[in-house]
Design a protein around this nucleic acid. Structure first.
Length: 293
DNA sequence: AAAGCGGGGTG
DNA sequence: CACCCAGCTTT
């Protein structure tokens, strides 16, 4: 299965900025963090602007956190931006401002989990690693397991299976990681896979089985959004991002009709370090809210 | 193992 | 409107 996928990748790989010749390991890590649950098309312009402004970890480490959160804009999950800056500071302090080519040390950085550590190892350093993201999980679920979609939560068996498919040498392993992900992103897609354009359709067990439906459909629960704390938090963050200075509590109150829920979300945002509450000088006055400095 | 965490594009 | 997106952290 590997050779057809690698050949297909050589012909169809997207021309993404974090794959360009001048890329740096740090740039690769930034792209991976931005791509954690945010689609490529929305990350691309944000990554270009970000890297032009803060090319290396030392630059990001020195930036005001409010600027970092504003530059993150609407990529979603702004805690990732906070962790990315913490990561930059950790790289400066622990590793002299250079990203280590070591899986355990990468994994120890804020915001870097199993996927991101493996991806940085492969894409930034050309090293062999087991890169298992939502795309690769789906490709393996179909071609090898013959199932429409992988289980809702990643299993140990999947990691073992993915590891068995990784080529032995560093260079080919790194190419396999990119190629198998790309196949999942462009051909073996979740919604409407383009099996007619797939380089491995003739060995795919899911195709052989007649493309059966999703086994785990009954267990999947789509995350609600409307009315949740996440929506409230999003509105507060959007308001504070647009604001030039501190925002009075009355203005914050206006973004959500349920005062108790809003208060709970504000407390959580402050605890997360995404928002700073500035107590009023007079006991009679309401506090103001702003992004951290 | 499951829940929490944004936001927007698509069928 | 449901589903999906190069996941991580905490419980």
């Amino acid at each position: 299965m590997r050779d057809p996928v690698l050949a297909w990748f050589d012909a169809h790989a997207r021309d993404l900025p974090w794959r360009a010749p001048g890329r740096t390991p740090w740039g690769v890590l930034v792209s991976e963090v931005m791509l954690q649950q945010t689609p490529v098309v929305r990350v691309e312009p944000a990554w270009c602007a970000w890297m032009a402004r803060w090319p290396g970890p030392a630059d990001l480490a020195a930036a005001p956190t409010g600027d970092v959160l504003r530059a993150w804009d609407r990529l979603g999950y702004p805690r990732r931006a906070l962790r990315l800056q913490e990561c930059a500071r950790a790289v400066v302090e622990r590793h002299g401002g250079r990203l280590p080519a070591d899986e355990a040390r990468l994994l120890a950085l804020p915001g870097v989990g199993a996927y991101t550590a493996a991806a940085v190892l492969a894409f930034a350093f050309g090293r062999r690693s087991v890169v298992l993201d939502t795309n690769v999980r789906r490709v393996l679920a179909r071609t090898v397991a013959g199932e429409a979609l992988p289980a809702p939560t990643q299993t140990v068996a999947e990691t073992r299976l993915a590891a068995a498919y990784v080529p032995d040498d560093d260079a080919t392993a790194a190419r396999w990681a990119a190629a198998s992900m790309e196949l999942g992103a462009l051909v073996c897609t979740a919604r409407s896979p383009r099996c007619d354009a797939c380089p491995v359709r003739d060995v795919c067990r899911w195709v052989a089985a007649g493309r059966p439906g999703d086994l785990h459909a009954h267990r999947r629960r789509t995350q609600a959004f409307t009315g949740t704390d996440r929506q409230v938090r999003g509105r507060v963050m959007a308001l504070l991002r647009e604001a030039l200075g501190p925002v009075p509590a009355s203005a914050v109150d206006a973004v959500w009709p349920d005062p108790a829920q809003l208060a709970r979300c504000l407390d959580a945002l402050v605890a997360d370090g995404l928002v700073v509450r500035v107590e009023a000088a007079s006991v009679d006055d309401a506090p103001t809210y702003r992004l951290p400095h």
